[in-house]
Amino acid sequence: MKNFREIELLSVYLDGQLNESESKRLETRLASDLELASVLNDLRLTRGILRKLPARKAPRNFTLTRKMAGLKPPLPRSYSFFRFSTAVATILLMFTFAANSVARLSFGFGAAAPAAGPAFGMGGGGCDEPCGEALQAAATEAPAATEAPAIEAPPADMLPAPTTDGTLRESEPSPDAVQTPKEPAVESELQNQAPVEKEAVIPVMWQVILLVVIGSSGLTMWLIQRSASRKWQ
């Protein structure tokens, strides 16, 4: 068996890819070297057998459909307008939410400080909804308030005549006497809290309008796409 370099040379010669001088040199060797000539013949016959293999025809057409090729239907120019308007409206909507959130946060911090002062001192402030209940509870704790007059009791001559009813009347706090100092505090707290909740940089109406724009543009885009793909098919 010849070395591989010689076999490669023979293979290239067989395909007519050797230049003229190399071919002549090899042909001179082939005339004298029978083994080399025999290997060349083997390679020629092997190639011949491969070339005789029947060509297999395609069992079906491999032509591509638009779907297979990944092509999309051409869309009208108005589509890009709607796409742009949807994108802009979406960005604006996000901006409105962000702006309103920031506004609420900043007002919330500003309003929290003054609300905390009276709340701490009055034993019922600094809360949102339970405030009313707490104040009501405070109002019913009237006996605590009635004890104070007992300590700083007026002179006996100024007191009404001691009767069995009288002590009860004294111990019963009159609703006016208890609630009167509390009411202004409740109102002032509610007044302090109300602006914080109502504060919004961008009105809700604008957000609704933007939502409508996004929805209608998206729907229009979908309809355009659908009609374009139907026409294309």
């Binding site: 293999l53 060509a55 297999r56 025809k57 395609a58 069992p59 057409n61 491999f62 032509t63 591509l64 638009r66 090729a69 092509l71």
Partner: peptide, 24 residues
């Protein structure tokens, strides 16, 4: 330029050679 019909004409011309190569 995106002409699928033109490409399909090329496919029809080369599909036998392509399939034969693949099957071998």
């Amino acid at each position: 330029n995106g002409d699928l019909d033109a490409f399909n004409t090329l496919i029809l011309h080369y599909q036998d050679a392509v399939f034969n190569t693949a099957v071998r």
